[in-house]
Structure formats: structure tokens, C-alpha cells
Write a protein that binds this DNA or RNA. Sequence first.
DNA 1: AGACTCCCCGGAAACGTTTACAGCTATCGG
DNA 2: CCGATAGCTGTAAACGTTTCCGGGGAGTCT
Lengths: 367, 367
Amino acid sequence: MGRKRLQEPADGRPTVHTVAARAGVSIASASRVLNGVGGSPETIRKVREAAAEVGYVPNAIARSLQSQRTGLVALAVEDIGNPVYVEMMRAIEAVVASSGRQLLVHATGGRIDNETALLRRLANRYVDGMIVSPIRVTDEHLTALTDSPVPVVVVGQLAADAPIDNVRTDSRHGVALAVDHLVATGRRRIGFVNGPLDTVPGAARDAGFRAALARHGIPLDDQLIEVGDFQYAAGRAATERLLARADPDALVCANDLIAVGALHALLVAGRRVPQDVALVGMDDTELARMMFPQLSSVSLGSAERGRRAAELLLQRIADAALPPRREQVPPNLVVRASSAATLPAPRPATGPPGPPTTHPSSEGVTA
Amino acid sequence: MGRKRLQEPADGRPTVHTVAARAGVSIASASRVLNGVGGSPETIRKVREAAAEVGYVPNAIARSLQSQRTGLVALAVEDIGNPVYVEMMRAIEAVVASSGRQLLVHATGGRIDNETALLRRLANRYVDGMIVSPIRVTDEHLTALTDSPVPVVVVGQLAADAPIDNVRTDSRHGVALAVDHLVATGRRRIGFVNGPLDTVPGAARDAGFRAALARHGIPLDDQLIEVGDFQYAAGRAATERLLARADPDALVCANDLIAVGALHALLVAGRRVPQDVALVGMDDTELARMMFPQLSSVSLGSAERGRRAAELLLQRIADAALPPRREQVPPNLVVRASSAATLPAPRPATGPPGPPTTHPSSEGVTA
DNA sequence: AGACTCCCCGGAAACGTTTACAGCTATCGG
DNA sequence: CCGATAGCTGTAAACGTTTCCGGGGAGTCT
């Protein structure tokens, strides 16, 4: 004499049992109709009616428990305030949404323990997959990535033999594009404001800068290199330090936030941009176009990388047996007003400045 | 002769059954030990050991189904690229994380159908609660809010009698602060670049601007008012249109993105800021401090509003019977270089400009 | 007419966890 | 020495859904 299951939970919300009882069918039939699979016309009508009457909405958790997927995809980035991640997130969100899933965003603050903790928590299956863009990578990190219980795609540099889906760019080459451009327009005392050297992007950009100078036969001057965080304030402070001890005629910045900080520092110091100092940022975010003058910037294809990472992830979710894949998005220099002048005019003592130099607000020329 | 339940699922991941079997105890005991409630020392040792050996991680979905909560909180904003929402999100995330929950971020794009759809989906119980900052509110929207099945907190203006937790600011008064400041420093031809008038913030700011001018006895000049989106590009375009037909000596902008666009348009047009045109933004985001000159801006306490909204939400999740509450965060003008000059010097035909005016990069003075 | 196919339906199992309940042992107090 | 009590344990139900499986009815073909 089994006691009949409660039709209506205490909190009053209808379940499939409520609907089934009201329609006078079994929960199996009700479920089938609600999922649009099977059911006679009469049953379909009755169930639909009952569902509408009680305002039935399926419980996503119960559904997930049954189907073993949550319809959630996570994205973990260092700093959600950095426009480059906003662009990447937008691209990812578009792909993810088109597959009927939702995006969960985590800010790791670049702290590595934070990120490994996140990877560990993946094991509890709350998301179907994760895209992570780590700026520091340790061995522990790497093992957490490789034996993650849910699919993971990494955006960024990764050891060559790591069997992890990976979409990267070549930021070494990106820095080279910037240096080539500056050298070609007559700059020689080229400074570099970088992020922390113990990060993957920081190290790559540093190597790229040194190699590019060497290729042009320009001796490296340590006084022209500064390091800070990948943030506006750090970029501004680093540039102030650099200007206090050296006199660059161009500045390459490791990302756009740093470049904006550098621009601020240059203008405060009375340098004209680009006449006295040419400026090139990196990431080509919206921020670069907002500045006056507009900033030249090396696009690392963040939106494209995001889009591809999302596609890789969706494919892997669909088929876990896929071999690990690796995609690469080439960097691309966009020249704007901040580095447009061809050569640094010899600094006029106090020349007749005329009307304020009208910077062409050009939309930027792709190199 | 009931067939024994499978100990190990096909996908090989350990469940509490696996652990229990390995430890030689019942799943109930295993669960109790793993949750730290009860268990003899011997049982505790055995279960802990077994769990460690098989690398057991509890399945969050099953747990959620049982406990009726997911540990997820959603935030829905119009544009994730707007720094003001980034600041709000950071504040919310801090509170939410300190309660052991995670934040799910939705970008609605300001499309209202998108937002109501989101509210509907809430009924599937995928999150424990939601913070929403709508820029347009319809009746349908309002009913979706009021009879939402999960707790909702609204950040922004709302009809006075809506029984919904709500934290707001007084952006009318915010605009008034800006206008007062500009009038006090000698400006008279004050322009206004607003967002769409069919949005709640757009309408409030418009009303505030008109009221403030009236209070100072300054006649309203429609030529000095422009409207666009709450975005950089729209702000720049709107300012260009405004400058083409009028000659303001100050500009109030409905948010910082618009203000940055306005700054760009002003500089391209050869206007000096603040000497020719004083500029005041709104929201006081990081962006305002990045610009050169740094932008004065009316802080609407977005971080504070976010923090309070998160706290309201957590309290309501804990106790659904609470009466609806309403909190208010006062606006606050921060004066920086973009509106620092006390009065507009009569425009020199072509005066001796000397070295580029060194804008003090002051940290801003709170009014 | 009988066998076979096809479709629909309902019962019940399953997803993995927590927890109410009852039974057991051991300890302690009287 | 016996009863009460406290603490631990295992069985089973519950969360809400999907889905496997077997039964039954209607239709069709031989």
C-alpha cells in the first residue's frame, strides 16, 4: 500500500506531477509532451492546457541531474575590467548563446591559487565546460588543466606538448610589428612598458621586443624598459619613471590599458604625441579609439580568439574523444594618430604652434 | 530480490556510493562524514580515506536538487562593456563571493524582451536570486518582476508602489550638482548630451537638467541639447552635431562614455577643455580618471549601489518574508581638470599659447 | 482470422545527493 | 542489575526530471 507521492510541493510550485495529475495522464506522458516528443493529439492538448493553467516551468536542476549537463559554460579571466576581456567575452557569449547555453564569468585577479581552485571546483560538474585565459601557468596548474573532468579550452600560450585545446596568438610577433613600424617611421630610442615578467604574456612580449631591436641592429638600452602591472595606473607610473631617466622617441606598451596610462604620463610631462613620442599599444581595444589622439595598437584578435575558443569548446563538449587541437590567430598592427607622424621633427625650442595640431581622427590603417 | 544499484557510473567518476562501498559503510554514513556532521572516529577515518583514494568530489547538481538552492546569483545589465557596470559587478561579486556563492552575468543589450525572457527563465530555478538594472521598464516587465519565483533586486528607478527590493540613486539631483558647479564657475551656455529619452535614466537626467537650468534662471536652449545612445560613439557623434549648430561653454554628459566621446569631439574641433568648454561626465568611472584632462564626473555610487543590492538580495534569499525595502545612495560631484578653470577666458583670437597648458592631474575634489 | 507492426501509454528506474526514521550498542545513573 | 539515554548506523524516501520497457489497442497484410 505505497503512499501516493505528493502532487504539489509545499512551496506551491507546479511540477510535472501537478501537470500530469491535472491532465489525467502519467508523468511519463506529460514529460514527453512537454519535450515535444510523442503523444497523441488528445494527450498533447490536455497536457499543454494543464501546463498553461498551472504555469508550469520545468526545473532546470532536476533536468540537469538527469541529462548530465547544465547548459552553463564558464569563462575565467584575470580582470573583467580590461576591455580586451570584454571583447573576448562578447565574442564567446555570442557563440555560447547561439548554442542555447549561458555564460558564467569568473574574475581570477590573476592569482593562480584562485584559478586552480576554480579548476578543482569544475569537478563538481556545475558547468559543461570552461574557457580559461591564464596569465601565469605553473605545473600544478597544468596538471589541473589536463585532468580536468570537464572540457577546458585555454586561450593563450601553453607548453607545446600539453594535450589541451588551445587558441593562441603570437604576441612576440605582435611586438615585432610595432617595433618595425616605429623603426620604419624613423624612431630609434624606442621604449617599452611591459607587464610583469613572470606572466606568460609579459615574458613573450619582452622576448619579442628584445629580438625585434636586435633584428634592426638597435642596441638594447635597459633604461628604456619599464615593468608594471597590466593596468592603467601601473602603466602611467611606469612611464613616469621611464621619462624621469630617459628620453624615448617612441613607446611600445604591452597592452592598451598601459598605453593609456603612458599617454597620460606623456601629456602631463609636456611631450607631444606623436610628434615627440610615438605611442603604440596592444590588444586594439575600443579604448584605443577613444583616446585623443587615437592610439595605434597591435590587434591580437581577441574577439576572434574568443570566438574560436568557444567553438572548440562546444565541439569538445559534443565529442570528448576529439584529439586536442591548437589554433593560432595572427597579430595585426592598426596604425592610428598616435604613431602616424613619419619622423620626429627636431624639437622646436618654442616654435609658433599655430592652432592646436589637428590630429586626423582617422579610422586607422591596417598594416 | 532488488538488483543492487550500480556503484560506479559508466563515466567512471566516483559517487558517494563508490566511497561508501570502498569504506564499507552505508551511503548515509558516507554523506554524513563528508558533510562533517556525525560519524564515529573510525567511520570518519575510513570514509575520508576512501574519498581521498578515489578522488571524490560531490556533484553540485544533485546537491542542488536536494537542497533547493544552486549557490548561483545572476546579474543582468545592459552593457557589460560600460565601466560603470564593471564597477557595480565587482562590488556585487565581492559580497556574493563572501557568502560562498558565484555570480552569473547576463548582458541584455537594453532590449526589453531579452530582459523579460531572462526573468521568465528564472522560474526554472537555475539561480537563487537575481540583481537587475533595467534601463527601460514596461508594465509587462514590472509584473514579471513582482511575481518572479526567485528573489529579485532592482538597481535603478522604479515605480514608488512596486513591492520590489530596490536600491536607487537620485540622478536628477546628480545632474543638478553638475549644473550648479558649472554655473558657479561662470558657465552660462551649458549643453547637455543625453542618452535615449525613453529610458529611465535618460528621462530622469533630462528632467534634472531642465529643472536645474530653470532654478538658475537660465533660459532653456534646445539647440544645446543632444540625444544619443549611452555609448562612446554616440556621445561623440551627438557632440559633433551639437557643436555644428551651437557654441556651448560647458557640457554635461549623461554618463562617462558619452563624456569621453564628447571630449574627443571637442578636441577634434579645436576646443580647449576646460578653457573653452568645461566638461562634466556622470558615473565617475575609472575612465574619467584615464582621460587627459581628467574628467569631472558625478558619482552615482555605482559600487555602493551594487554592494547594497547584493546585501539586500542575500537577506531576501535567507528570508523571503521580509517586507520590500528601498535604499537610496546620494550622488556626489567629483571635480577634476575638465571643469576646473573658474571662468571661461574670452577666447583669444590667436593668443600666445605658450607651452601646452599643463593640466593639473589632480586627484579630484569632492564637492 | 491470425500474425505482425506501429504507436501510445503508464509503471518504474535512474541521475547523486541529503535526511527522516528507526534500530542498535554502549554507557551511565539509580 | 535494569532502564533510560546518547550516539552511531543503515534503510529508504525525497528532490523533479527523463527514459527504458513492457503492455495494450488499432490497423494492416497475408
